[in-house]
Computed example of a mutant assay.
Amino acid sequence: MKNLLQHLRGQYGELFPSLCDDHPDIFPRELYTWEQFLWACELWYSNSMNVMFPDGKLRTCLIPIAGFLNHSLHPHILQYGKVDTAANSLKFRLSRPCSAGEQCFLSYGHFSSSHLISFYGFLPQGDNPYDIIPVDIDATEDDSITSNSTHMVRGTWLLRNHNIFYYGLPLPLLDHLRRTQSPKLQYNTLLQANLENEMEVLGRLRSIFDCVMESLGAADLHDRENTSWDVRLAVEFKDLQRRIVSSILSSCDTGLKLLKNEWCRCLAEDSRG
């Protein structure tokens, strides 16, 4: 959010007060203040939408009435509206039925909750698949998966495979940690060395997210109904982050139990010869 405000402040500085000085009849100073500019930007970012014009070009517009359509993770409208010159109207194609009297939702885009809070001022209801927590981990020179050390982690409830070697966790992150831990091992085989390496990997990952959870602090349990809407949004967003981190920690713990059981089984088989 700070970066966005800095960007807007820079844009404002490039335009004003130069325009006010050069064209005072068009840009009177009392109307083109920073506060008014910020209000206009908020209006544009939160209400504008793409429209297909008859010439086949997409243009970003502010549209009365249509601008009141709310966002949903399961919207009725997925694509842009299209100008119908014959009916002199703007039409939106539904991707699923919307009954008479039912609120019609559209998609503002594939945005994370942090983006929706920053640009639209709300937190979506339900599990947003675009909510991620970036994790910075030192990359090695032979890391072929990514040229940087940032990995994106989602809530593990969004992934189906929670079996051994997967755990509901992102494979690029797991593979990076595996190579860092023991680059010569072959993975996804139930050998004792692999299982021990996996336990080290999950232990390291758990340690990383223990620190993340600690940085988020304890849950804020004060009376939220009587707080301002922006403070309440901030608290709810932090709760969401805790939920994501908690799911990662739980997946690590469950994975460690799976690995320990398999490791004990391998030891038992080795002891029997």
Rank of each mutant, 00 (worst) to 15 (best):
F92V: 07
C41T: 08
E269P: 04
M152T: 08
H23E: 11
T140E: 13
D21P: 00
K91L: 09
E236T: 00
H176V: 02
Y167F: 14
N3V: 04
M52T: 07
H23T: 02
D223E: 11
E14L: 11
P134T: 09
L58G: 06
Y120P: 05
N50L: 13
S113A: 12
R206E: 09
L259S: 05
L15Q: 12
S149K: 11
F237C: 00
T150Q: 10
R154M: 04
F237W: 01
L267F: 01
W157H: 14
Q241W: 00
L8T: 01
F16M: 09
G203V: 00
D25C: 00
S271E: 14
V135N: 02
L38M: 09
V245K: 03
S271D: 13
D131N: 15
F105L: 04
E141K: 08
L106W: 09
M1Q: 07
S48N: 08
S99T: 10
P75F: 05
S246E: 13
H222E: 07
C211R: 15
T85W: 03
G10K: 08
P134H: 12
A139Q: 14
S107D: 05
P24H: 12
L31F: 11
E214K: 14
E214S: 12
A218D: 13
E30Y: 08
P64D: 06
G255H: 02
T85A: 11
L159S: 14
D25I: 00
C211F: 07
F209G: 03
C61L: 10
